[in-house]
Amino acid sequence: METLMAFVVGGLFAAAIYMMLRRSIVKLVIGLILLSNGANLLLFTQAGMLRGAPPLVPLGATQPEGVVADPLAQALILTAIVIGFGVLAFAVVLIHRAYEVVEADDMDQMKDTDT
């Protein structure tokens, strides 16, 4: 499964980067979303993928039964997703402001700092 996921991650990165290289700012936002999904999945893949072994300790026990999935990677991804939302919101609003000032969807018209 890790092999398959490696290509999924690669695909997401490629799609994200292609979008970020466009001149349209909306496409830049889409690229950012794809990129954060790709990065999260990359982390998830690297921690090892196990089916049906959530990192939970059964009631009454002190240790989980058998091997469980890596909880640390999950904790990292969990916060990354939420922060990703915050940062995305920030980026989107920033872009929206830029659009209002420059009145163009074209990144090439945003190259000057003193507009």
Partner: peptide
């Protein structure tokens, strides 16, 4: 703290 859930999920 014991089952899936927690501050992030509950907040969302």
């Amino acid at each position: 703290h014991d089952e899936p859930g927690g501050g992030f999920i509950a907040g969302l």
